[in-house]
Design a protein around this nucleic acid. Structure first.
Lengths: 190, 190
DNA sequence: TGTAGCATGTAAGCCGTTACATGATTGA
DNA sequence: TCAATCATGTAACGGCTTACATGCTACA
């Protein structure tokens, strides 16, 4: 019953709580990974499969989730549901632990910092590649957003998705501007 | 001479290359940590002291940095400089390894996702606390930006800092908007 | 019949943190 | 003289990834 979980544990518990509200009979580890890939990925992390199973084991040990084995053919799959204790733990975590400041690991910014090491074309190439990646991410997130619709139960996930879309737009705009700045300053030289 | 370093290693090597360009006699681990706190922190991570020393040991073993012991009083401090091989390794890394997409760990977004678990005031309190933290971060980064000035040698670090400032402004604006949305939607209920 | 996707786990190992341990120097 | 800051490291451990291992099911 000891509950001193990592934030990632609570994130997974959060996915289980949403599932619990739609009267399903729970999620397999595999399904949980898919949900994480669709949502958590954009503003937290999507843990590896092995990590998912490890966390489900821990949540079960702590009584925060419960497994139900269901047999289908000669195969037994294990579905997990959040428990009452799990709901309580999630609720408490939300309110108690102070909310840490976001952590950003930004390889593009890191490389740009040292861009004087490389010719201008390399720098522009990297920035343009990032803008292309942003467009892909944005379209993936847009699909998620559209899947959420305007249902009241999903208003907060929808807000988070909107936030993410705005963020990708912001990044694309800033990076395009930086690329212009690099182009201008390099042609001004000689 | 084996060089298969983590991105954090290259980030530190990047700090050493900047230092090398200003004809200093190198940096101590302690000073390197201070530089990381002023710059890397905002878009990568600022490693723990113990990590800094570990990385410096590795860079030295690989011939990418070299230590120079200087005695002052009864105290010997060890200053590190980047080597030619270190410069080459950094240059190669910049161009070779494909630039990964940024990773965001955003506890505010994560909590907002599950905001239906808590009363409106808790949600607003969290969002407002984040806006306050953003203002503090912004002012810290602004001080860094002003310290960079308009020198041509520091134009890329300046670009990155400008980007960061714009990002903090974006976040503050979006989160304020979300708070308004939460307020409106909660007063509309009953 | 074969392959892609569903499904579940263990083992090894990296990266990074906190805790621990130690001591010198500077300045109030 | 006392506290803050400078300075350097080791040990233990947590979180997470990749690699490894295994097998079922649906469908082309």
């Amino acid at each position: 019953m000891r509950s001193d979980l990592s934030t990632t544990s609570y994130a997974l518990l959060g996915l289980l709580v949403f599932d619990g509200e739609t009267s399903s009979h729970g999620l397999t580890g595999y399904e949980l990974k898919q949900r994480a890939d669709r949502t958590l990925r954009f503003y937290w992390v999507s843990p590896a499969m092995s990590q998912i199973y490890t966390e489900l084991g821990r949540l079960t040990r702590d009584g925060l989730a419960e497994p139900v084995d269901s047999v289908r053919g000669r195969r037994t799959t294990r579905r997990y549901r959040i428990t009452g204790a799990g709901r309580d733990a999630l609720h408490d975590w939300w309110g108690s632990a102070e909310t840490e400041f976001p952590t950003l690991k930004h390889p593009v910014a890191l490389r740009l910092l040292m861009a004087h090491l490389r010719p201008t074309d390399d720098v522009l190439g990297m920035l343009e590649a990032y803008v292309r990646q942003l467009a892909i991410r944005r379209s993936e997130l847009l699909a998620v957003r559209e899947g959420l619709g305007d249902a009241d139960t999903l208003r907060f996930p929808a807000m988070v998705a909107d936030w993410g879309l705005a963020y990708y737009d912001f990044e694309a705009q800033v990076v395009s501007g930086l690329a212009d700045r690099v182009r201008r300053e390099s042609s001004a030289e000689v």
